[in-house]
Design a protein around this nucleic acid. Structure first.
Lengths: 107, 107
DNA sequence: GTACATTATGTCACATGTGATATATTCTAT
DNA sequence: ATAGAATATATCACATGTGACATAATGTAC
């Protein structure tokens, strides 16, 4: 039930990352969401720096434009596995990932 | 096909982490596997330090003994999401995760 | 403002991950 | 060697993730 709630709120413009108070997220769940958001942002940054479109990136990753959009939005339907595999395929190093993760909020 | 191949080899005692040469793994795939293995080992270490059994940890994580075993073995059937959620539930911090990831092989 | 590119959102068939259960294997004492 | 605890492996019904497609919303020039 909580996931649907989050999805609904996000749909209406609420951004996760500051929503732990509204939704009943445990600290672990919060940390997990923050971590996903951090990876999402990193993915978006990297793509923008390459000045390629979502469509081009989708082709590179053998995925689809819509899924790239969802990845960058931190959509609940995307796994950390996919985010990490994508980032690695884009040339990110484990150190890049580690830094992204360590700088995500809530320690 | 490659996944089945890896599963078969692992079943026969081959340890991934040095198998990139045998299997046709791209550098990204290798990095991904290494990362998973690193998280697996970290999970096992943490549990052993708490001197609890897989059964007890399974109860804590609302999972099952068999899945804990597979997590600790880096089984292909376990996602990074699950590993990370489990570690967070065990009290690991994002920094712990970051360090684990940055020290996984293949940069 | 309108044509066009880019990004976002909804939906769905199919793929992959998950807890549970059963059973096999390994470990640790005695 | 034997028993019992701990861990590993196999399998499966059900849950979640994924690429693809359609379509909506937003941006960017003219």
């Amino acid at each position: 039930m909580r996931k649907e709630k989050r999805q609904k709120l996000e749909r209406q413009g609420w951004k996760i990352g500051n929503a732990a108070d509204f939704l009943e997220l445990t600290p672990e769940e919060s940390a997990f969401v923050e971590l996903k958001v951090a990876l999402s942002k990193f993915l978006k940054e990297r793509r923008k720096q390459s000045t390629i479109t979502q469509i081009e990136l989708a082709k590179l990753l053998k995925s689809s434009q819509s899924r790239i959009a969802k990845m960058e939005a931190g959509d609940p339907s995307v796994s950390i596995d996919l985010l990490i595999r994508s980032l690695l395929a884009m040339g990110a190093t484990n150190k890049d990932l580690a830094q992204t993760i360590s700088t995500s909020k809530l320690v």
